[in-house]
């Protein structure tokens, strides 16, 4: 049986962008981390770029494909790591959706990136707390990770801003 695919331009675009995001995701996974969840999240630069350039639904595809394919390649599919990753991505997308609907000048890459980073870590924590470790002790870790998320979100937002500007020019 032969499978016939008729990919659209949109499909191609998603595939390329997701591939780029997955590459960054995997490279990051190789970095040593002092704490689980402490990652720079550079893959999100791609997500926010896509959000700014092509809109929310394309960004959602790229983001979720990144989580899925990344986990398959790293061998963490359906593991807690994957679940946490997915929870973070879903939480980010959830907060980004209303933000893109704001009238006027609205948010720029920095606002998106920062909000996404904070939503990401909060989503992961809620999942970890509700499912993996139903114990209040885990919240002692939260401030550290949240502060880190703010820092990373800010840095990634500024990078994204430069990339988007560069692509526009």
């Amino acid at each position: 049986m032969k499978l016939h695919l008729h990919p659209t331009v949109e499909d191609h675009r998603i595939a390329w962008l997701a591939a780029a995001a997955v590459s960054i995701h995997i490279l990051e996974a190789l970095l040593p981390s002092p704490l689980p969840g402490l990652k720079p999240g550079f893959a999100n630069v791609i997500t926010i770029c896509v959000l700014c350039l092509y809109g929310w639904s394309t960004a959602a595809w790229v983001s979720l494909l990144r989580v899925l394919v990344g986990s398959l390649l790293l061998g963490t599919f359906l593991s807690p790591t994957f679940m946490l990753s997915l929870a973070g991505a879903l939480a980010s997308l959830l907060i980004l959706w209303p933000m893109t609907r704001l009238p006027g000048r609205g948010f720029g890459p920095v606002g998106y990136s920062l909000a996404a980073a904070m939503a990401h870590i909060s989503g992961q924590f809620l999942l970890a707390w509700g499912w993996f470790v139903p114990h209040a002790g885990i919240w002692r870790l939260f401030p550290v990770l949240l502060s880190f998320a703010v820092l990373v979100g800010l840095v990634n937002g500024i990078i994204t801003q430069k990339v988007v500007k560069h692509l526009h020019d």
Binding site: L5, D11, L65, L68, L72, G75, F77, S79
Partner: peptide, 18 residues
């Protein structure tokens, strides 16, 4: 939705090794 089909077929071929 081709994209969803491909996504779905990917799931089916995944096994976890411990």
């Amino acid at each position: 939705m081709n994209r969803l089909k491909i996504l779905f077929s990917t799931f089916i071929f995944v096994f976890l090794l411990s």
